[in-house]
Structure formats: structure tokens, C-alpha cells
Amino acid sequence: MSMIRTENLCKSFGDLEVLKDVNVEVDTGEVVVVIGPSGAGKSTFLRSLNTLEEITSGKIFIEDKIFIHRENNKTLDKMDNAAFKALLLEMGMVFQRFNLFPNKTVLGNVALAPMQVRKKSREEAEAIAKRLIDRVGLSDKLDVYPSKLSGGQQQRVAIARALAMEPKIMLFDEPTSALDPELVGEVLNVMKDLARDGMTMLVVTHEMGFAREVADKVIFMADGQVLETGTPEEIFSAPKTDKAKQFLASIL
């Protein structure tokens, strides 16, 4: 079953076309990695799925049901509001700059949304949070504020925070790009662990090693378009387009 499918997704900022007819499908349980040069529209694509960016036109389907359909910046069709919001909550997002809440401890960051959005009791929310913080290996940091953590630790907390909403799909927007090289591994390990558990993941990254090892499917984007889709083997060993060849040559 397809978890998310997009049809002719377009996004413009004024006259600048950032996404041009993007068609992507992510199946349930699949790990899809999006690669491509900067400015390709990878992040915008990811952010348009959970409506952080409003698409100009195109359709997004979630679990084969229409999520939103827009043309010329107008919404033509949309899932009913309650279902729409419920599905949004099931898309977890991890940001390049972590975006942890500096006024909350590690525990507070992870327990906040279950309490405020899912209306769970403090005990219940904290129990969930502790389990997830343990999963990302930071049980000894429960009462620490984010500013006292390394970048890698912060990103692991951010992953736990997103998982606390029990998402069906996790969107990763360059999760390791803001990290010092020696901290990249710990974050990727948490992500690999998630993938092994069957989490559906859409990952924008420059970590080609991760893509090779974990991805079921690799999407190469450039200039707002999907130029190639295939297995890691197909994309990395036999890229078809010149842009993909150039990009891979420059990064590997």
C-alpha cells in the first residue's frame, strides 16, 4: 500500500518555480532517500507534505485517499478537517537545525505534544517520553536543557520528540547536515534502528553511505524535478542522466 503519493506537485515562490510536477510514491514500511544538489527543492518537497509549505498545485494522497488537491494556489479538494489534522499528526518531522524547545528539558520536549495535543496525562506522556529517550540512548539526560547537549544528542532528542506522536511516517530534512562529522554516526544509527523496525521514512540527506545501506528507493532531484528513481544500486552504479552523474561524481 502506498503511504504517501504525490501527483504533479508544484510549488512557486513568486516567479520562482521550486517544484515542477513532482511525482513520488512512498510505500508503507519503505525507506526513501531523496538526494540532489542544493536548491533542487528537496526540502521544499518534504515540507510541502506536512503543509509547512503550501503547494501551488498538485495532489497529495495518503494511504491512497486524497489528502489535498490544489490548483493555482486554490484548494479544490481536501480530506475532511478532523481526518486531515489526524493525518498531519501522524507525520513526524526532524529538522536540520533540530528546533528543540530551549525552555523545556529533554523530557519536557518529548512529553509536550503527547500531553498538549494527544491530551494524555502527565504520567502517561512522561512514560512514553522516557521509553523513547531511552531508545535514542539519552536516559541520563532527562532533566537537561537542550543547550547543554551536543548537536548529535539534540537531534536524537528531536527524533524521540517526533516519535512520541506515534507517527506512521517520519520525514527527515537533512538531519545530519548541521552536525560535526564525528556526531553524524550516532544520529544515523538511530535512523537505521527505526528503519529496521519498519518505520516508513522519507529522508533528505547528503549521507550517501546511509542511502546505500538503508534505502529501499533513492530519488534524485535537480532543479525542482525528480530526474531519477530507483534502487540505491541503480542510482549509484548506473545513473542515467548527466545531472545525476555530475552530482554523484562531485559528492562521492
Partner: peptide, 12 residues
Amino acid sequence: HGQFEAAKALGL
């Protein structure tokens, strides 16, 4: 601005 985005993504 990332604070608003993170909060929105969590459904707050």
C-alpha cells in the same frame, strides 16, 4: 522561526 515550525509539525 524553527520553533513555530517544530510546534506546528507536532500539532500544537
